[in-house]
C-alpha cells in the first residue's frame, strides 16, 4: 500500500507545471524515504530530478518500493481538476496498475477521486557524482526567469560568466547583443531578494536558452534559485519545493569539438 497526503496540494500542481513541458512521461519511485523522479528530456540534453521527502507529507505510507510510470500530460490534466487550496492524496495498492488522486476541499465538504492508468516505462537512470562546484550562484528566481526570457530574444544561447565581481548573462544574435550583470547584494531587506555568489574559481559556460526557459517554469515553487557551475560539466539549476524537497535540472553545456 502506498499513500501520500499533502495538505499544501498546490505544491504538487506546481511540480507538474515545472516538468511537463520537458518530460512527457516519467517514473515516480516511491520508497519509505519518499518519492523521487529522474528523467531525461526527449533530446537527452537535460535531466530532471525531483525529490519529495516522506517527512514533508502530512501522511506518508509506503509498505513496498513502488515504481509508478505516468503519462505526465494525463497527470497534469487530473491535477488541474483540483482547487488551489485542496488537500491532495496519492494512493496505490501494491502491484497496482492504477494510481488514485483524491482531492479534499479544506472544509472536507467536497471530495473528488480520480484514477489514472500506470505505464511500464524503461528506467534509464544516470549516476550524478558528488561535485564540488567552482561557482554557486543564489539569486531571486523571478530575476533569473526574467533574464532568460529577455536574452532569448537575442540568440539561441546564453553565456553565463561567474567571477568575483558577480555574474554576467550574455546573448548575441542578428539583432545585436545583450548583457545583464548582477553583483552580489551587500544588504537586502528580504533574504529572497539576495544575490549570493560562492566562487572558488571563475567559470564561463554556454547553454541553450530553450532549456533554461523550460527550467524557469519552476519559478512559482520558490523565491530563490541556485545555479551551480563547474568547467565543462552540466549546470545544475535548483529550486526548493516548499519545505518538502527540491527539483534539480541538469543541463549539458555547449562545448568545443
Amino acid at each position: 500500500m502506498f499513500e501520500a497526503r499533502l495538505v499544501h496540494g498546490n505544491l504538487l500542481k506546481k511540480v507538474l507545471d515545472a516538468i511537463k513541458d520537458l518530460l512527457t512521461e516519467a517514473s515516480w519511485d516511491c520508497a519509505d524515504s519518499g518519492i523521487q523522479l529522474q528523467a531525461m528530456d526527449n533530446s537527452h540534453v537535460s535531466l530532471v530530478s525531483v525529490n519529495l521527502r516522506a517527512e514533508g507529507f502530512d501522511k506518508y505510507r509506503c509498505d513496498r518500493n513502488l515504481i509508478m510510470g505516468m503519462d505526465l500530460t494525463s497527470m497534469s490534466k487530473i491535477l488541474k481538476c483540483s482547487a488551489s487550496d485542496d488537500i491532495i492524496t496519492m494512493k496505490a495498492q501494491d502491484n497496482a496498475d492504477t494510481v488514485s488522486f483524491i482531492f479534499e476541499s479544506p472544509s472536507q465538504e467536497k471530495v473528488s477521486d480520480y484514477q489514472m492508468k500506470l505505464m511500464n516505462l524503461d528506467q534509464d537512470h544516470l549516476g550524478i557524482p558528488e561535485t564540488e562546484y567552482a561557482c554557486v550562484i543564489k539569486m531571486p528566481s523571478g530575476e533569473f526567469a526574467r533574464i532568460c526570457r529577455d536574452l532569448s530574444n537575442f540568440g539561441e544561447n546564453i553565456v553565463i560568466a561567474c567571477s568575483k565581481e558577480g555574474v554576467k548573462f550574455s546573448a548575441a544574435g542578428d539583432i545585436g547583443t545583450a548583457n545583464v550583470k548582477l553583483a552580489q547584494t551587500s544588504s537586502v531587506d528580504k533574504e529572497e531578494d539576495a544575490v549570493v555568489i560562492d566562487m572558488q574559481e571563475p567559470v564561463t559556460l554556454t547553454f541553450a536558452c530553450r532549456y533554461l526557459n523550460m527550467f524557469t517554469k519552476a519559478t512559482p515553487l520558490s523565491p530563490q534559485v541556485s545555479l551551480s557551475m563547474h568547467p565543462d560539466v552540466p549546470l545544475v539549476v535548483e529550486y526548493a519545493i516548499g519545505e518538502i524537497g527540491q527539483i534539480q535540472y541538469f543541463l549539458a553545456p555547449k562545448i568545443g569539438d
Binding site: 531525461m40 533530446s43 537527452h44 540534453v45 537535460s46 535531466l47 534509464d124 537512470h125 544516470l126 549516476g127 550524478i128 557524482p129 544561447n157 554556454t206 541553450a208 560539466v233 552540466p234 541538469f250 543541463l251 549539458a252 553545456p253 555547449k254 562545448i255 568545443g256 569539438d257
Partner: peptide
C-alpha cells in the same frame, strides 16, 4: 558557439 552534446556524455548510466 560550441556544440551541444547529450547529457549522457557527462554522467554514466547506473
Amino acid at each position: 558557439e560550441g556544440r551541444q552534446h547529450p547529457i549522457e556524455m557527462f554522467y554514466a548510466r547506473e
